[in-house]
Structures are given as C-alpha cells and as structure tokens.
Design a protein around this nucleic acid. Structure first.
Lengths: 147, 147
DNA sequence: CTGTGTGCAAACTCTTTGCATAAGT
DNA sequence: ACTTATGCAAAGAGTTTGCACACAG
C-alpha cells in the first residue's frame, strides 16, 4: 500500500508520519509519531506491545508501556494496524492491514507473513443465522525440525 | 438423558472414563475422572479452564482451579484434548482432536466447530528451511449482524 | 508404604485503568 | 486557554508454581 519513505526522527518538517496521523484523525504527538516511525519504517512487522516498548527504549524514545498499549490500540482502531489472531500469550500487531495469512513459529512465538495469493480457503461455510463473517484467519503453525 | 454411557460419579464399576485414563497412562483419580466425565459426556465442547471449573463447582465436584489447569494440560499432552488457537484472552480446549476448523464469535468469545470436509485450504506454502508444519488452523471470525 | 496428585495461596505475565501532570492546537 | 495525551503505579485477568497433605496402587 503506502509506506514509501519515512523521515528518520523527523519532528520538524512535514514528515509523512505526521500526515498519516492527521489523516487518521489522531493528534500527532511526540510519542505517536515516534512509535509510528518505528512501526512503519521497515516494512511489514509483527510486534507485541512489549517488543515495541523495548525498541523505543533502545532508541532512547521515552514512552511508557501504557502509552504503547494505548497507541497500538488507537492505531488499530483507525485502521493503521491489525491485530493478529494467533494464540500464544502475547498480542501481536501487524503493520500490514491487507488480507493475508501467517506462519506462526511455535518455538519462539514469532509471526511471519504468508505472501498473499499463495494460499486460499475453499468453501467457507455459511455462518450461523444472525452472524456475518468478520474475517478469515489462517495460521500455519510451524515447529523446528529437530535432528 | 443424563449420561448415556458414563456412570455418574462412578468410582466403582469399570467406567469408560476410568479406562480412557488408564489407556492414556494417567492415574484415574477422583478429580481426573470427574473432569473427564464433564468434558466428554456431551460430545464436542470448547471450554476454558475457568469454565470447566465453574461447571465442576456447579455439580458439587470439588476441584481446585489449579488442578483443572493441570488436568487440562495433562489431557492435552496425552492427546485427549486439543488446545484451540483463537486469540482472545482465554485458552480454549477442544474435546474434538480431529482435524477441523472453527468459527469464533467475537461478540462473546465463543468457539464453534466447522464440520470437517466443508472447508479446505489450498496451496499451503512451503515452510521456511528447517521448519515443518505442525498444523494449519483456520478461524472464521464472526460478528453479530446488528440491525 | 511409596510416589504421584491435589489444594491453596502466592507469584507471574500481560494488559488495562485512574488520576495528576504535560503537551498539542 | 482548553482539550486531549501521557506517565506512573496500582489493579485486574488468566495462568503457573511451590510445598504440605491426601490418595492411588
């Protein structure tokens, strides 16, 4: 979709991140901009709140964990992120909001994209009366071959 | 209409539950038998630890929540149960260990079986080097149609 | 008897919340 | 200024763990 070039650490100037937030109807605060930058700079990512928080700390971006959670949920609400439905204890957020599915590496609880168009689901059954399909998630669970 | 094949509270007699546990290599203790009875009496179920615990309490079966957790995991280890991989905060256990997929009703975090053979997955991509497929989970997420 | 299972409570992880302070427009 | 976001710490859910006692074989 979008994310072409992002201005590193760009507070000033009209960074695309700032514009992205404005268009999403979110006030471009320091924290939101910094997190958006981390999230969307490097292409598609699958990250947990804790992971993003650590990354922010590592780059000396002062954000509290609570704000990371808030921000991830706000981004999800406005369609900038998508929550990935794999089990495992943590919640993962996906910067790729297009329709696609995932590998889930059980050994280290990591999520990888399955490129779209490579896999399809056949004959999705009709939902029960009164319900509609919100989305279809396919998770191909992987385990390391131990030899 | 109570239990068909299972002897309620059956300590004595050779209840199928007792045999099932023996064959699985688990000592048929009171708690394990009671829980197995609740789990497997009524056909396929998708239940959380908390749900099973409440059910046990309701039927005056004294079991601690810790034991419910232990038991569910032990049953899973020996292949009597399967953990269902939907997201949502709770972990669900499925008494149907065959290959099949699920509807997940987002509104009330409920899991329903999709009958096997009704749906298939095409062209599952080759896993990355060094990994093998543990299993493929399809979750059709449903939301209530609001009028 | 001997070892495994159980119960309880406390610990732990992940996530959410309440409220005073700080920042955005 | 006026409003919304943030940080902190505390609370909350779900799940796990450690250890003394109880029960199955």
């Amino acid at each position: 979709m979008e994310n072409t070039a992002f201005t590193q650490g760009g507070e000033h100037g009209r960074s695309p991140v700032r514009t992205m937030l404005r268009e999403a109807g979110l006030r471009p605060t320091r924290q939101r901009m910094a997190l958006a930058e981390l999230l969307f700079r490097d292409g598609n990512r699958h990250i947990s709140a804790e992971g993003l928080h650590e990354e922010a700390m590592a780059r000396r971006v002062p954000v509290s964990l609570a704000t990371v959670y808030n921000t991830l949920h706000q981004f999800t609400d406005v369609g900038l992120l998508r929550e990935v439905a794999v089990d495992g204890s943590k919640t993962y957020f996906d910067t790729n909001t297009d329709n696609h599915h995932h590998f889930f590496i059980e050994d280290d609880e990591r999520v990888i994209d399955i490129p779209p168009g490579q896999m399809g689901v056949d004959d999705i059954p009709t939902p029960p009366e009164g319900y509609e399909i919100s989305r279809v998630d396919v998770v191909v669970r992987l385990r390391r071959i131990r030899g």
